[in-house]
Amino acid sequence: MSTTQALQIHCKPLPGLMHFRGANMASILEKNDAADLQIFQYRKLSDDRFIANLGAEEIYFCVDAAESLELQANQYAFPRADATFELSGNWKALMSEVCIYDFRQSQPGDFLMVSIAGVSAWLLIPEADEPLILGCDPTFGHYFQEILMKQIEESPFL
């Protein structure tokens, strides 16, 4: 179980991460076998990729480098260079020190957007025995990793 492992954080690059905005986002979900994906949920795809439904006009999607992007009218795609990390061990204990969110409410498969140590971040809530994937604006990446590592090393609660 992840909760018995020592807390560890390391970089987890997610190449091809794109932010899609605009009309008919359902078509992108459908094309990737995720038509049934509920809002603020994500689904794992092959090669560590994922697709997340953020609403009728917004999705996050790690595109396959081998596939070409075909956008419909009024659809916009913006590459994201987010700093992304994998957090293993009792990540909920660490989150309780840096994030106000009540993780009792979250379920595996949830895509969360929260503030962690003062930085807006997104989280892919994993199954119980899997590590947490989280990402933030790339310009905060250095601070984000440093503060989480410091917390892991210094907190008397962990």
Partner: peptide, 13 residues
């Protein structure tokens, strides 16, 4: 508490 003082670095840092 611990000091959370976010700091941003540019890609060319």
């Amino acid at each position: 508490g611990m000091r959370f003082r976010p700091e941003r670095l540019t890609p060319m840092h």
